[in-house]
Amino acid sequence: MDLIISLVINGLATGMLIFLLASGLTLIFGLMHVLNFAHGGLFVWGAYAGVFSYAYSGSFIVGIIVAILTGLVFGFITEKLIITPVYGNLVQQILITLGFMLVLQEMIKVVFGPNVVAVKVPELLAGSWQLGDIIIIKYRIFIIFFGFIIFGLLHYMLTRTKIGLIVRAGVMNSDMVQALGINIKRIFLVVFMTGSALAALAGMLFAPYSGAIYAELGMEFAIMAFIVVVIGGMGSFQGSLFAAILVGLAGSFMAYYVPYLSLAVNMIIMVVVLIFRPQGLFTTAKG
């Protein structure tokens, strides 16, 4: 029983991190039809910028803020310099975002050095609780809570605010949104920056969780996020939460029971989903 609970907590924590990464990806895709292969680069930039400023300032909160700011700035740059010039050309978009991913990843090594960086959990969140036989690691609970708070915030923004309404409308029909007098490009930029900030935040939260970060992390996590976006349905925000938790849980259980299969299982799920339900598990087919 205690094993199950700790595996669930593990899975949920990973799931929440993937959700942060995937939610930005899915919103950007849904609204702009851009599959941003550089998304993982923002994850790893958030992690490094955050961790270095956390080490420098000694404050985890400063680290988180710097990570978010990094995400916003990089999101702005990416949208303006990388996405806009090839907007509407699918092949060019795929090619260019992958190229940018490469540059982002290598830039990490130039700016922060090529070595693996060790990260400690902030004191307040370090350690664990013991409930009977069960050991609960505090930082994991923190991630789960944090993740749900972000989900709640995003959900509120999407359903209760005007801009959220516009984003949802834009996902369904962006031409019509423009014809109603809304500058969709500005909305694109806002969504892109938000998505990038979420990715960067995920990177920063992930750093103490894994204890070490390195430049290639971005690509590895991005693949997880892609899987989640596919399973959850491209453009579906709720879908990405469910799928992220599913992937997180599957990963954590598999890693324990069948470690050989752990990475494979997610990819196999994705392949199966793509082949039989390309619109994703959690979205209804649009007619």
Binding site: L165, R168, A169, M172, N173, D175, M176, Q178, A179, L180, G181, I182, N183, I184, K286
Partner: peptide, 28 residues
């Protein structure tokens, strides 16, 4: 740009109506 044109005072009802299917009437 389309949104500028719309803001000058042109409303558009497309052939397929362009309703945002997942939004309520109110939200539309």
């Amino acid at each position: 740009a389309t949104y500028d044109i719309a803001n000058l005072g042109i409303g558009y009802v497309p052939e397929d109506q362009g309703i945002f299917g997942d939004l309520t009437v109110e939200e539309n």
